[in-house]
Amino acid sequence: MTSILLVAERDEQGEISQSTVQAIAAANGLVDSVVTAAIAGEAPASASALAVEKVVTLSSIDDADLGIYDQATAEISALVESTSPEVVIFSKSDFGSVVGARLAFRSDSAFAADCIEISNAGDGVSVTRPVYGGSALAEFDIVSSRAIITLRAGAYETNTETGSPSIEAFESGVNVEQTASVTGTVAEAREGVRLEDANFVVSGGRGLGGPEPFSVLTDLANALGGAVGASRAACDAGWIDHSHQVGLTGKSVSPDVYIAVGISGASQHMAGCSSSRAIVAINKDADSNIFKEARFGIVGDWEKVLPSFLATVRELKA
């Protein structure tokens, strides 16, 4: 393999995101490759120390494109056409999932979503991705001259390797007329730390039985300086907003401690939290799958367990 294009993303502060740094580690693990990172807009300060050969800025992609991604797809397709990378890596974010999938068809390339490993296989690459909701792993050989890959957050370590890339601007001159237009954004208000960044996550599931118990989970999360998550069942029931959903089709979290309360541990839920340092399960069913994934557990009723747990946490933190 000779060249890899990595499509970088930003964090809340506008700097290069952790998931992009992880993707760079994945790219650099594929030997002998020249890695170029592309980023929408101006290069942030953190771009100049990335462990890549080159950073390309794409100034034609702006916020008006967010969510529709017509311009991003066009501009990145043009960049791919002019630089012919064998592998293009995106983060498995909203942006990466949509632009990556569209780019694959526009450039007649193979697409592999939500990968946890990329490796060399003969002349080409192979990838490993969870399938069947995480119940199984599949290894695929890419049989196409180009592979578009999205990488799951937490699949690779965020290493501290640095470099001194050149920074260049790319402009294809293409300006697509937006086919659909965003007329507004309605965001959930957030207090405290972002779920994806939290060191402690307290998540509730169907076993909570209703919306009220989430206030106890919030108290616990606050005592730990963490954030509240939920299973899809709890979100679908309307007990808590979907922005709290952890899992395959929700958020990926990798805190030090993930506390699952009244959650059965379905593979699709675990897909979003299995890279946590320690999973703690509180569930009244000893046969529940969550105990196969957890490091610590209590078989019991959360209503009886949580108050003393919270009180002791508060004492320890005082």
């Binding site: 367990v305 108050p307 747990f309």
Partner: peptide, 23 residues
């Protein structure tokens, strides 16, 4: 993975022991 189950005298005691164990 091998789970370590925390067992107290009752469920409230288990909750307390869990916090101590995590510390």
């Amino acid at each position: 993975k091998q789970v370590e189950l925390i067992e107290g005298e009752d469920e409230a005691d288990s909750g307390k022991k869990l916090a101590l164990r995590l510390r």
